[in-house]
Design a protein around this nucleic acid. Structure first.
Length: 592
RNA sequence: GGCGCCGUAGCUCAACUGAAUAGAGUAUCUGACUACGGAUCAGAAGGUUCUGGGUUUGAAUCCCAGCGGUGUCACCA
């Protein structure tokens, strides 16, 4: 089904027949628009074997292919490039195959088990724009890997313990007066986040006071009463103190309720949720193993380290002197227990690029411990989302809250739709559903179309476009095809079974692009990049819009056969667009 | 400072493992069939791919140096 590979195969056969090239490293790419042809072979790599100049080589190859491959209609040579054009019959067949395919674009089962860890929030504050990128990426990558034929497991590792939660707890005890999400009508994660901010405010005030009293700043940071309280609470938590654990469970519960709402609105989900409070002791066994193997070493104070200086890295702590584990130890342990439980072939961590070093070290340590599956770990290291003023800083209040952002996107979509009169005749519930799909779709596409690895800029003032390379543009294209289908159905005038006898240039262009969908999914999966799928969906929608403009379907004077062909092409396009967008987690309205 | 990542139209982003004249969108300007749904389509204009060297038949892409930005260098996660 992958046409590019078919053509590549022709070229391989030609190169072998003419020059005896075995498995030559050939590249075939799409022919650039300004030249005639569908696919292009770059002949430079073959010159060493052909001992001829690029033009002659291309000419010979072209003639061989023309003579031996009946699907090829023509070829032409420009400089060292051999352009190959496939015949109309070939494309008709491709179109028919796509029409008949059950799950077009979705790969056959690979038998591989793939884990994707994403989201992994702290429980002391609500989700913000950075988390949005994380969640959307994780969810979409999981869907893409699944579409490529893998068995996928989405996991979330919630950081539910530590000093940061204690800070919220202390502040709540001091200033909360028993406030609950119910009593204050505040979403739980926001409520707890408010106390985290309250802690920071009180903490700063106390430091200032101590400094004014003559204490050095460094010392004041440690001696501030509220910080001492938080540290003491963490110790109590670790000792299992009942009242601390109860409060901890209650406040975390509020946060989870809040997160659930956010996750649901965002449309993401997980197959398994890990809690760090249950995994933080993992990895200690691994430390023993490492010590036995001599990979780790113990210092005089009892702490355990690994020396990575010979690999150009630092020394890394793995166990504190008091015997408690650190982040790295936990992650090592979690990875091992996951491998033992699920035997993954690929373990993708969707984590910001600020943790690049951590994952480099993680993989290296596992390798040194002798775990070959260390290579299966992939850190999908995404870039930060920046605001025009620079990085988001929760302490400076320059965060873009996830809930607020989603709500404002939906609202903006509603206003715009209603101005355009798109919501006329729809019930309140229907308009809301449509606005929601458009607003959230715009947001998701805006984030996912960017290469995950790159830092991206989000300008709240300019907000998100609804025209151009956006989800609403693609959704609109889709909704219009749905409308055509409804009308054609009512008219009962279109018989889709009419045999396809010819395709014009634009139609061939569409079929060509349609045929690329499976390869796009595979490439996106290999690359762990939804951006590839987004680009494809846009390209498809754009091309179809051009086609739509030039090819009337339900207007008078269109012959029955043209009508059938155009409508069936439209329906296939709609199906593929729907599939592609679903890989991005974007819902498609059938009217908008 | 050590290590890493990034630098492409005014702006936001593309360009698969090096390949033909570096592409879209947006903003600006000009147009489009009596709107099968105009959130559409066509066109114009917009570039020394940060700078300087190098490798190559060929460099935005690979190598070196510099400049600018950013991340990290916690017994936080």
């Amino acid at each position: 089904m992958n046409v590019e590979n078919i053509v590549l195969d022709y070229c391989r056969r030609a190169a072998e027949a003419l020059y005896g090239a075995q498995n030559a490293d050939l590249q075939v790419s799409k022919t650039r628009r300004e030249f005639v042809g569908d696919y292009t072979l770059v002949t430079f790599p073959l010159l060493r074997l052909s001992h001829k100049n690029p033009e002659q080589t291309a000419q010979e190859l072209g003639e061989w292919i023309g003579a031996n491959c009946p699907e090829v209609k023509s070829f032409n040579v420009i400089k060292g490039f051999l352009n190959i054009e496939l015949g109309e019959k070939f494309w008709i067949e491709v179109l028919q195959n796509i029409q008949a395919a059950e799950n077009f674009g979705f790969g056959a089962p690979t038998g591989r088990t793939v884990m994707v860890e994403y989201s992994s929030p702290n429980t002391n504050k609500p989700l913000h724009l950075g988390h949005v990128r994380n969640n959307l990426l994780g969810y979409s990558v999981a869907k893409i890997l699944q579409a490529a034929g893998n068995k996928v497991m989405k996991v979330n590792l919630v950081n539910d313990r530590g000093i940061h939660i204690c800070k919220s707890m202390i502040a709540w005890q001091r200033y909360g007066n028993g406030e609950t999400p119910a009593s204050s009508a505040t979403k739980g994660d926001h409520l707890v986040g408010n106390y985290y901010v309250a802690f920071d405010k009180a903490y700063k005030a106390e430091i200032a006071e101590l400094v004014a009293g003559g204490m050095a700043e460094e010392e004041a940071k440690k001696e501030a009463p509220i910080m001492r309280e938080a540290s003491a609470m963490l110790l109590k938590w670790e000792a299992g103190d009942k009242s601390v654990r109860d409060l901890w469970a209650t406040m975390n519960g509020w946060v989870y309720d809040g997160f659930d709402v956010t996750y649901k609105e965002m449309g993401v989900s997980f197959d398994k949720i890990y809690y760090e409070s249950q995994t933080y002791l993992l990895g200690k066994k691994l430390v023993e193993v490492g010590l036995e193997k001599g990979v780790f070493y113990r210092r005089a104070d009892g702490s355990v380290w690994i020396d990575l200086t010979s690999d150009g890295l630092d020394e890394k702590l793995l166990l504190r002197a008091d015997g408690t584990s650190v982040y790295m130890t936990q992650d090592l342990g979690t990875a091992l227990s996951r491998y033992e439980e699920f035997g993954f072939d690929d373990m993708t961590y969707v984590v910001g690029n600020e943790q690049n070093y951590h994952f480099t070290v993680l993989k290296l340590i596992l390798k040194k411990l002798g775990y070959a599956w260390s290579d299966a770990i992939y850190h999908l290291s995404y870039g930060m989302v920046e605001l025009p003023e620079g990085k988001m800083k929760s302490r400076e209040g320059t965060v873009v809250d996830a809930d607020d952002l989603m709500a404002s996107m939906v609202e903006e979509a509603r206003v715009m739709s209603s101005e355009l009169g798109k919501l006329d005749g729809l019930s309140e519930a229907e308009s809301f559903a449509v606005s929601r799909k458009i607003g959230l779709g715009a947001l998701k596409y805006f984030i996912l179309k960017v290469d995950p690895r790159k830092t991206m800029l989000f300008n709240p003032a300019e907000s998100i476009d609804f025209n151009g390379n956006t989800a609403p543009f693609i959704q609109y294209t889709y909704a219009r095809i749905c409308s055509l289908e409804r009308k054609a159905g009512q008219a009962e005038s279109v018989d889709l079974k009419v045999a396809i006898s010819s395709l014009d240039d634009k139609e061939i262009e569409i079929v060509k692009l349609l045929a690329e969908f499976p390869a796009t999914v595979v490439a996106a999966a290999a690359d762990h990049s939804p951006a590839v799928v987004a680009a494809y969906a846009y390209e498809m929608a754009k091309l179809y819009n051009q086609y739509y403009h030039e090819h009337p379907i339900l207007r008078e004077g269109v012959s029955a056969s043209d009508r059938a062909l155009r409508l069936s092409i439209s329906l296939v396009v709609a199906r593929v667009i729907l599939s592609a967008m679903s890989l991005l987690g974007i819902e498609m309205p059938d009217r908008m």
